[in-house]
Design a protein around this nucleic acid. Structure first.
Length: 356
DNA sequence: TTAATTTGACCGCT
DNA sequence: AGCGGTCAAATTAA
C-alpha cells in the first residue's frame, strides 16, 4: 500500500491539469497541439497512478482470495443501496457470482461504483451442451444473469429506435411476440467476435406505453477489457429486476433495491458528466443523492467517492483505469470523459442517426 | 467493399 | 405443437 499515497498525489496532479485544461478549452480551441500535450501530461500522471495502484491492487487481491472475504456484508449492501452506486450492476452480481469469482467486498464495491466497469466480473458463462445435430448448434438456456430495465424512447430524433445505452449493438433478429403489440428486437454486442463478448439484449416496446422500451440485458460485456471497447453505462434506466435467473441468490439485496425503489425510480435524461464531478469535487463528498443512471452517470460516479474512507483504493483504480480504458469504437473515449460537452454532442449525432 | 439490418427458416425448450 | 431465440442469406446503407 505504500504506493497509494504517491498514486493519490499523481491523480490529484492529473485532475488539476485536467481542470486547468477544462477552464482553458475555449482559449485553446485553435491550438490542438497545446491541448494534445496537456492531455499527454494528464495521461502520464494518471497512467503512473494506475501502475502504482495496480501493484497495490494485486496485493490486495491476494488477500481478497481468502474465503473470509467472500461478500456477506450487510452493511456494504446497505451502503450500496443508500448511495445508489449503480445498483443494477452491484446487485446484479450475486453472491454466487462473487463467491465463484472470489470477489471480495471491496472489489464488489469497486465494481459497483466503477462507472466504467459495467461488468467487472467476467463471469464465465459455461456453454450449454450443443445439440447433437450436425447443423447449426444453437445455444439456449444458461444465458447467465439477466437484467431488465426500462428506458425512455428518445425524445428527439427517431423515437422508434431504442435509446442509446452506451454500448454498440448489432441487431441479429426481430420477432413478433405472442400477446405483445410490438416486436422484440434481438441484439448482441458489436464486439462479439472481436472480443468474444457475450453480451446481448432484447428490446421491446411496452404495450401500454410505446414511448418506453423494456430492455433485457443478458450476459456480460467482456469487450470493455479492450482499449477500443465501449465504456458507458445504460442510461435512462429504471431497474425492474435483476438477475432474474438467480433470484434466490440475489434476493437479499434486491428486496431493498428493486421494488419501487426510489433510487432508480425516475426515468431521467441526465447528461453524462462523470469527470466533471471528479474535477469539481476535489475528492470531497458530493452533494446529495443522485437518482439517475445516465451514461456515465455523474451523480453516481460522484457517489462513489462519498465513502472514500471505506473504499478509497479501488475507486481510484477505477478512475485511473477509466482514463485509459474507456475508449470506444463508437461512443466515447477518455477525452470524452474529460470534455463531457463533446460526449453530449456525439450522442446527439448518433442518437439521431442510428441506435443499436 | 464492408458493415449493418432484415427476415424467413431452423431448432431448443416447455 | 408452438413459442421464442438464433442463424444466415439477402438486402440495404455507408
Amino acid at each position: 500500500m505504500e504506493d497509494y499515497g504517491a498514486a493519490i498525489t499523481l491523480i490529484r496532479h492529473g485532475c488539476k491539469l485536467a481542470k486547468v485544461l477544462e477552464s482553458n478549452l475555449e482559449n485553446l480551441a485553435r491550438e490542438p497541439s497545446a491541448i494534445s500535450s496537456c492531455c499527454d501530461e494528464i495521461i502520464k500522471a494518471l497512467g503512473d497512478a494506475r501502475d502504482r495502484l495496480r501493484a497495490d491492487h494485486d496485493q490486495i487481491m491476494q488477500e481478497m482470495r481468502q474465503p473470509r472475504n467472500v461478500v456477506n456484508d450487510a452493511s456494504l449492501h446497505e451502503w450500496l443501496r443508500s448511495n445508489n452506486c449503480y445498483a443494477d450492476q452491484a446487485m446484479a452480481m450475486t453472491h454466487q457470482d462473487m463467491s465463484e469469482n472470489k470477489m471480495g467486498s471491496a472489489q464488489l464495491l469497486a465494481s459497483s461504483i466503477g462507472h466504467l466497469a459495467m461488468d467487472v466480473s467476467v463471469l464465465g458463462n459455461a456453454p450449454s451442451s450443443s445439440s447433437s445435430s450436425s447443423q447449426r448448434p444453437r445455444k439456449r438456456k444458461d444465458d447467465g444473469e439477466t437484467r431488465i430495465v426500462q428506458m425512455a424512447a428518445p425524445q428527439i430524433g427517431n423515437t422508434e429506435i431504442p435509446p442509446e445505452d452506451g454500448y454498440t449493438w448489432r441487431k441479429y433478429g426481430q420477432k413478433e411476440i405472442m400477446g405483445s403489440k410490438y416486436p422484440r428486437g434481438y441484439y448482441r454486442c458489436t464486439h462479439q467476435k472481436l472480443y468474444n463478448c457475450a453480451a446481448k439484449k432484447q428490446v421491446q416496446r411496452l404495450d401500454h406505453d410505446p414511448y418506453t422500451f423494456e430492455v433485457m440485458y443478458r450476459g456480460h460485456h467482456t469487450c470493455h477489457m479492450s482499449a477500443t471497447a465501449p465504456s458507458m453505462l445504460p442510461s435512462q434506466a429504471v431497474i425492474l429486476s435483476q438477475d432474474m435467473t438467480q433470484t434466490l441468490a440475489v434476493s437479499t439485496i434486491t428486496s431493498t433495491t428493486t421494488s419501487a425503489e426510489p433510487l432508480m425510480s425516475n426515468i431521467t435524461t441526465t447528461s453524462s458528466v462523470p469527470l466533471r464531478s471528479w474535477l469539481s469535487m476535489d475528492f470531497s463528498p458530493p452533494i446529495g443523492h443522485g437518482t439517475g443512471t445516465s451514461s456515465g452517470a455523474g451523480t453516481s460516479s460522484a457517489a462513489r467517492y462519498n465513502k472514500d474512507q471505506a473504499v478509497h483504493e479501488f475507486p481510484v483504480v477505477d478512475l485511473a483505469d477509466a482514463m485509459f480504458n474507456c475508449g470506444s469504437s463508437s461512443t466515447s473515449n477518455s477525452m470524452d470523459f474529460l470534455f463531457p460537452n463533446s460526449v453530449e454532442d456525439k450522442h446527439d449525432i448518433k442518437g439521431t442517426k442510428k441506435n443499436g
